[in-house]
Structures are given as structure tokens and as C-alpha cells.
């Protein structure tokens, strides 16, 4: 009698255990598909990024410009009414996460970055004919120190180091005989150590036998300021910067 009872309880427990994750799975599946109401009226075969990629924002905030992608068909003409889903690593959220393309074939979403500083690989996906089409893009989230660096760089560095002019600020890049490196030039800047970058900022270009057009900032910026600027340079770098040192994880 005792053994039979326990077998029955065991079965009940097992059944309950099995049902619980099943329902959870179902619930999750249900909530992961908010686009159930969206009925695609057309399908495209290609995805193109229109705008909103490669932005730089602070961690946890919504990027200034929305991410806009366009769905095209085989002929390269825009497809309205196609379903586009946006995906990203955990922490990133999209508003909306799935949307139908508008009359000009474009899908727009507001991107909120995760709370960890770094690069966020995002993707847009549209169910094409036969197989789905994806498009990858990248956004950069700056932590506190990197953002302080970006604010300082904006004031002291970007007028020369950023070749792009904007309506409110004209770049000085073209006026310089020796061209400064843009902060995204990973191929060059990744090879310069933190110590060397610090001395160039501290003492000016001639400190490392480089151009005197780069003035010294050692009496203007504090040590944490310079550290912040370097953190910002490393965050922008393309290809990404790999910090030197032992690889700790064994794996």
C-alpha cells in the first residue's frame, strides 16, 4: 500500500513538472510573437539598410535616430506590406519588434540599447519566398567613462579628427597638411598602445615623432579625462579593439 501510494504521488509530481515547463514554453512562445496580429500582404527577397545603423548611444537609452530598413523584391523595387522582425542580443529592445513595411517599403523601429557597454549586433529579418532574409547591422553603446570621453572628444578632438562636417560645425580635417586619424580607424589606432596614445595626448604629436599639428593637452586635460578619451577611441574602433593581455578563459 505504501509503495503504491508513493508511486502515484511520484506520477502526479512528474506530471505537474512536465506540464509546468510546457505551459511556460507555450506562454513564452505566445508572448514572443506579438506580431501574430500582423498579416503580411507581400513578401520581398532582399533587405537593405536605409538609416539608423552604426549609431553611438549611451547604455540603456533609446538611440537618437530610428533604425530603418527597406524590403525589396527581385527587381530591387520596394515592397510595401512585408513583415519585418528585429532581433538583438539580450538587453536590446525594439519598439516595435515586428512591423509591416509602409507604402515606401520601409520598416522603422526605435532601438533601445542594453545596459552593457559595447557593440550590439542587431538583425532585421523578413520571411522571403522560400527562406527568410536577414540583414545585420551594428550599434555601439557607451558606458559612463566612454561617454565622458565622447563629450571631451567632441569639444577638443573631433574638429580635426572627424573628417565629416555638419551644418553647425565645419571640420578642420581638410585644412591640415598631415591628416589626423579618424577615431574609427581601428587598423591604425588598435596598434598604438594605451600608453602611447596617452603620451601623444599629453605631450602632443612630437612626443612620438609625429606631427606638431597635434598639440599637447597635458596641461588642459586631467589624467581621468585622457583615460576617458582613450576608452571612447577604443569603443569606436573598427575593426574592434582587442585589449592586450593573457586570455584567461581556458575552454
Amino acid at each position: 500500500m505504501n509503495t503504491r501510494l508513493s508511486a502515484q504521488t511520484k506520477f502526479r509530481v512528474l506530471a505537474a513538472l512536465a506540464i509546468l515547463p510546457l505551459t511556460m514554453l507555450l506562454c513564452c512562445k505566445h508572448s514572443a510573437l506579438p506580431n501574430a496580429a500582423l498579416k503580411a500582404t507581400a513578401q520581398g527577397t532582399a533587405l537593405v539598410e536605409s538609416s539608423g545603423g552604426h549609431q553611438v548611444g549611451a547604455t540603456g537609452t533609446t538611440l537618437t535616430d530610428p533604425l530603418v530598413v527597406q524590403v525589396n523584391d527581385d527587381q530591387g523595387t520596394a515592397v510595401p506590406g512585408a513583415l519585418v522582425e528585429f532581433h538583438g542580443p539580450s538587453g536590446v529592445s525594439f519598439d516595435p519588434a515586428a512591423v509591416l513595411t509602409d507604402s515606401s517599403g520601409q520598416a522603422t523601429t526605435a532601438v533601445t540599447l542594453g545596459t552593457i557597454a559595447g557593440r550590439y549586433q542587431l538583425s532585421a529579418m523578413t520571411p522571403g519566398k522560400g527562406k527568410s532574409v536577414t540583414l545585420d547591422t551594428l550599434e555601439i553603446a557607451l558606458g559612463y567613462e566612454q561617454r565622458v570621453g565622447s563629450i571631451l572628444a567632441d569639444k577638443y578632438c573631433s574638429r580635426c579628427h572627424d573628417p565629416e562636417s555638419s551644418p553647425v560645425r565645419v571640420s578642420n580635417y581638410d585644412n591640415l597638411e598631415v591628416k589626423p586619424h579618424a577615431f574609427s580607424e581601428g587598423n591604425t589606432l588598435n596598434k598604438i598602445s594605451d600608453a602611447d596614445l596617452t603620451s601623444i595626448i599629453l605631450h602632443g604629436g612630437p612626443a612620438l615623432n609625429r606631427s606638431a599639428l597635434m598639440p599637447p593637452y597635458g596641461n588642459t586635460l586631467s589624467a581621468p579625462d585622457i583615460k576617458a578619451i582613450i576608452a571612447y577611441i577604443r569603443a569606436l574602433s573598427d575593426p574592434p579593439y582587442q585589449p592586450p593581455g593573457t586570455v584567461y578563459a581556458r575552454q
Binding site: 569639444k155 577638443y156 574638429r159 598639440p215 599637447p216 593637452y217 597635458g218 596641461n219 588642459t220
Partner: peptide
Amino acid sequence: ALRPSTTEPNQN
């Protein structure tokens, strides 16, 4: 020292 917010660096 004359204009704290100026971008011109102090060249010492």
C-alpha cells in the same frame, strides 16, 4: 585661466 571653457590647449 582667462576663459575656462576655451578649447585652446595650455602648451605650458
